[in-house]
Design a binder for these strands. Structure first.
Length: 561
RNA sequence: UGGCCUAUGGUGUAAUUGGCAACACUACUGGUUUUGGUCCAGUCAUUCUAGGUUCGAGUCCUAGUAGGCCAACCA
């Protein structure tokens, strides 16, 4: 909606052109066609947003179609996961479709093809066929079975269907052109024998169509107007059109395939094989590990569907090679979380501060605004007492004026609380500061309106009352790979770039209001970042994920020195 | 070596189709701020190269250069 004023991408230009040259608007229809053989990742998210985004823009239906033509790799588990992911992204499909729903129709069309002399049963080994296929620079050779009679082909194909042959003995091939410069047109295989149970058709079929004999027909059956796929399918377009030529009727809409460049994200990999390796080698805990670029991983990490959709829309779509910097994704995650996440206080690397002039045993509850970006988010109370934790990094015995946190003799504001002054500190045998003694100004309480409370102090720290703090496991994530393009190096394996410090588990001390959070809830730990409650979390053992840190200009300043 | 696709800042996309190269991110400067967050303002380009057509070229023409895809009974 907010992207309405954005200029058109090249796919939208194509659609506008079609609308101007005969297509009526109500004929537009799209589809998202995953193969149910793995989990969806951020690249799929882009494709989902493209197709469903087009559906929204043109008020057109979008089907979810499972490309389930290969029972050796596909499973119901993936179907369920894919549906969950698409729904989570916020989209509703018009129809839930399966290529397997079209098996009978596809078979009938294949029989028709044979009768028209456009297909034949080949009975060679795959090695022999590969030999005859030729190379991109040399034409192929005709199979010795290329000129079988229609009757023989029909009989053989039916026997294949009945399961009379073992796998690999016969295939059905289209009879096109063994000398075509397009390798896909050199008599492509249409059907193979597979004695495998299919997750939906069980053992009804012993032959299964290949992608090229299924996809375009599925589009045609569903009357998809624009079938969008990634660039590596561009050479398939000629075959896509050839197949449609064999069966379309003029009164029905003829789908068109158009191709776009797949989106690549920096500092990660998305190929199913590589993601699987990360899982199998235990680099991550599973497909939904919060470091994974899978949709389920991003969901668990705390990314919002809105942020992923906004990301997909701003990166747009084109035909050139690309690597989108992950910082753009993180920008959208922060941008959305900034609007919706409550600000709370948690200390992850505690240093005890004793406020020596605060009465022992006393406590008070201070008002705290939940979200300065959203007045309707309300407020809550946080407990304050004589002993609190602050972050170790927020105290230095001495520092220059650029460090405007706590230093000996210096003052800071405790967020939502008082102004304190560091008077002294205690160290252990190794010289580490283990406690800071401060005094506070009782008149400086936040929101009290006193002259003292309005004093400007440069630094404001988050803190947690020691005796009220609850503890939690906090998982700090960093990029999974140290290199922007881990699989872009010819001489090095992507596994060489795995970041050994991509997960750091620490104990956090949290303000007590956080005990009521539920799995998935998102908050901002003030000054630290956005966090959510992990699926591993329980009342006895809360677990938080750091979704994304806040921008940290101080860290950059320090790095420069 | 054949066919096809693609080249616009550090990154990703635009450019009313031949008319002042725009938007977002990143980075850097400053301002505001009870989060070193947010917010606000500013800075960062010989449009792959070389020729050509034109009053005018990112856009059209010619020749190069670079990258990608294509020889699975995968999708």
């Amino acid at each position: 909606m907010d992207a309405a004023e954005k200029s058109l991408n090249f796919i939208e230009h194509i659609i506008e052109e079609d609308l101007n040259t005969g297509y009526s608007k109500d004929v537009l229809r799209f589809r998202f066609p995953p193969e149910p053989n793995g989990y969806l990742h951020v690249g799929h998210a882009s494709s989902i947003c493209l197709n469903f985004g087009l559906g929204e823009r043109y008020d057109a239906p979008v089907n979810l179609r499972f490309d389930d033509t290969n029972p050796t790799k596909e499973e119901q588990e993936y179907v369920d996961a894919i549906k969950r992911d698409v729904e989570w992204l916020g989209y509703t499909w018009a129809n839930e479709c399966y290529a397997s729903d079209y098996f009978q129709q596809l078979y009938d069309w294949a029989v028709q093809l044979i009768k028209n002399g456009k297909a034949y049963v080949d009975s060679q080994s795959s090695e022999a066929m590969a030999q005859q296929k030729g190379t991109p620079t040399e034409p192929g050779l005709a199979s010795p079975f290329r000129n079988r009679t229609v009757e023989e082909n029909l009989a053989l194909f039916e026997a294949m269907k009945k399961g009379d042959f073992p796998e690999g003995e016969h295939v059905l091939r289209a009879k096109i052109d063994m000398a075509s410069p397009n390798m896909l047109m050199r008599d492509p295989i249409l059907y193979r024998v597979l004695h495998k149970a299919h997750h939906r058709t069980n053992t009804d079929w012993c032959i299964y169509p290949l992608y090229d004999w299924a996809h375009g027909q599925g589009d045609y059956i569903e009357q998809v107007s624009h079938s969008l796929c990634t660039l590596e399918f561009l050479p398939h377009r000629e075959l896509y059109d050839w197949c449609l030529d064999q069966l379309v009727s003029p009164e029905k809409l003829r789908p068109k395939q158009r191709e776009f460049a797949r989106r690549n994200l920096s500092h990660t990999v998305v190929s199913k094989r590589k993601l699987l390796k990360l899982v199998e080698e235990g680099v991550v805990s599973g497909w939904d590990d919060p470091r994974m670029p899978t949709i389920s991983g991003m969901r668990r990490r705390g990314y919002t569907p809105e942020s992923i959709r906004n990301f997909a829309h701003t990166i747009g779509i084109a035909k050139r090679e690309n690597v989108v910097d992950v910082s753009l994704l993180e920008f959208h995650v922060r941008d959305h979380l900034n609007k919706i996440a409550s600000r709370v206080m948690a200390v992850l690397n505690p240093l005890k501060v004793v406020i020596t002039n605060y009465p022992e045993g006393e406590e008070e509850w201070l008002g705290a605004e939940n979200n300065p970006e959203d007045a309707s988010a309300g407020s809550r109370s946080v407990p304050f007492s004589r002993e609190i934790y602050i972050e170790k990094e927020d105290f230095r015995e001495e520092a220059n004026r650029k460090f405007f946190r706590l230093k000996l003799g210096g003052e800071v504001r405790l967020k939502n609380g008082y102004i304190i002054k560091a008077e002294s500190c205690t160290k252990d045998e190794e010289g580490n500061v283990v406690e800071v003694q401060c005094t506070y100004d009782p008149k400086s309480k936040s929101g009290s309106g006193t002259e003292e409370s309005l004093r400007k102090v440069k630094g404001t720290l988050h803190w947690v009352s020691v005796k009220h703090a609850i503890t939690a496991e906090v998982r700090i994530y960093d990029r999974l790979f140290n290199d922007p393009t881990p699989d872009g190096h010819k001489d090095k394996d992507f596994m060489d770039f795995v970041n050994p410090d991509s997960l750091n588990k620490v104990t956090g001390y949290l303000e007590p209001s956080l005990k009521d959070l539920k799995i998935g809830d998102r908050v901002q730990f003030q000054r630290l970042g956005y966090f959510n409650v992990d699926t591993d979390s329980s009342a006895e053992h809360p677990v938080f994920n750091r979704t994304v840190p806040l921008r940290d200009t101080w860290a950059k300043l320090e790095q420069k020195d």
